[in-house]
Structures are given as structure tokens and as C-alpha cells.
């Protein structure tokens, strides 16, 4: 093959075919369909692409598992500063003192309560309202994932009750409502194919499933 020019005998170029591979767009699609030169070039580029995927798989395998020591040592080297968020004032026993809870400490509390429920994992959570003003009405938004087979309504009701207790005990916030949204239904570990990455599991269409329940 000529290595100084990428122009095919039909007048089109391999560069055009390369772009077509990525974008699906080419100036003369009819020609492409019928030109043996172009089809051969395309086939060659596709074989390279397949081989590229094989190289990627081989390189990823060589990189080792994310549960191996190399990743642990990287994680050990990180010092992940807490995300404090807003400062929530607490009543203090002395006028000279300032006592606070960080918003981050409350979201960690919410996560630990949700994670402790069987078959449930917390996602994002938000405190809506002015937490920096004592007594201001606050709405808590929690997203959760529930393992398939666990009763969602019941889980949400239990979680709401436990969150209300935990927030009453550990904060001085005036909680107006606790909204719980089930955003994901997870395959249970037992029914999951070993080695199936979670990204390959198909949760139901989120548009159908979220059940938002509100505290009366």
C-alpha cells in the first residue's frame, strides 16, 4: 500500500472513512454503499477498532483489580477533606460559645441510618430550608436504592420513621417533612451473576418507579 497518500482509487480518502466511523456522516453515502474500495477500507478500519478493544481489555486486565493493593495504596495517600457544607447553629450553654453541626455531618447521619436498613442504600440527600436560622422549617430529601424483592413502601415508611427519630435526637432542626425517593432497584447479590458490573444491570426505568412519600 502507498503510505504517503491515503486516497483510494475511487477518489475518496481513508480519512473520510475514519470520520464516518465516528460520526456516521460522509459526503457521499450512496457511493460508500456501493464502492468496493471504500468498503474494503472501512472493513480494515473496523478490524483495527476491534483489535483496539482487545488491546484495551488486555491493558485493563494488566492493570489489576480495583480491590488490589495498588489502589489501596493510592487511596491511603489521599486525604479526603470532609465536605462541611453549611454550618448549622446549636444552642449553647454560654453566650460566649458558638456551637455548630455541619450540613455534612447531618447527611452522613442520614446515610448511616438508611444504609443500616436491610436491602437499602442511601444516595444523595438534601436539607431544604434555611438551616442557619434556628427554628426554620426544614424539608429533608433522601434518595435511596432498594434491593429487588424488598417491599419499597414499607422500607420508605420505616426509613422515614427512623430518620425522624435520629434527626430529633442528634439535631435541633425543625423538620417539616422527610421525602424519600426510590431512585434505583438493585439486583440482589444472590441473583446477580458473579462478576457482572453493576453498570450492566438494568434497573427499571426511573420514570416509572420512583415512589415519593411524604410525611403527613
Amino acid at each position: 500500500m502507498n503510505t504517503t497518500s491515503d486516497t483510494l482509487e475511487c477518489g475518496h480518502s481513508l480519512a473520510e472513512l475514519s470520520t464516518y466511523l465516528d460520526t456516521g456522516q460522509i459526503a457521499d453515502p450512496v457511493h460508500l454503499e456501493t464502492c468496493p474500495e471504500c468498503q474494503a477500507g472501512l472493513a480494515s478500519l473496523r478490524r483495527l477498532s476491534v483489535l483496539g478493544s482487545e488491546l484495551l481489555s488486555s491493558d485493563v486486565a494488566d492493570a489489576g483489580s480495583g480491590n488490589d493493593d495498588w489502589m489501596q495504596s493510592i487511596l491511603d495517600n489521599l486525604r479526603l477533606e470532609l465536605r462541611p457544607g453549611r454550618s448549622i447553629p446549636l444552642h449553647s450553654g454560654n453566650a460566649q460559645d458558638n456551637l455548630w453541626e455541619t450540613e455534612g455531618s447531618i447527611s452522613a447521619l442520614i446515610r448511616s441510618v438508611a444504609d443500616a436498613l436491610p436491602g437499602t442504600a442511601a444516595g444523595k440527600c438534601r436539607l431544604h430550608g434555611d438551616v442557619t436560622t434556628p427554628g426554620a422549617g426544614i424539608t429533608v430529601d433522601v434518595e435511596i436504592a432498594v434491593v429487588y424483592g424488598h417491599p419499597m413502601e414499607e422500607r420508605a415508611a420505616t426509613l422515614r420513621r427512623e430518620l425522624a427519630e435520629a434527626l430529633a435526637l442528634h439535631t435541633e432542626l425543625a423538620i417539616d417533612a422527610i421525602d424519600i425517593t426510590v431512585t434505583d432497584v438493585l439486583e440482589s447479590p444472590a441473583t446477580t451473576e458473579p462478576g457482572t458490573p453493576p453498570s450492566l444491570q438494568t434497573p427499571p426505568d426511573p420514570a416509572d418507579s420512583p415512589t415519593t412519600e411524604e410525611q403527613p
Binding site: 470532609l82 462541611p84 454550618s87 446549636l90 454560654n94 460566649q96 460559645d97 458558638n98 456551637l99 455548630w100 453541626e101 455541619t102 455534612g104 455531618s105 447531618i106 452522613a108 447521619l109 448511616s112 441510618v113 442528634h170
Partner: peptide
């Protein structure tokens, strides 16, 4: 000694 104390709870539970 005259004192002003500032305490932040940055984590609850866990």
C-alpha cells in the same frame, strides 16, 4: 481565664 469556645460537629455516627 476568659474564654470563647467554638465547637463544630463535623460527623455524626459511622
Amino acid at each position: 481565664r476568659p474564654t470563647a469556645v467554638d465547637v463544630s460537629v463535623v460527623k455524626v455516627g459511622g
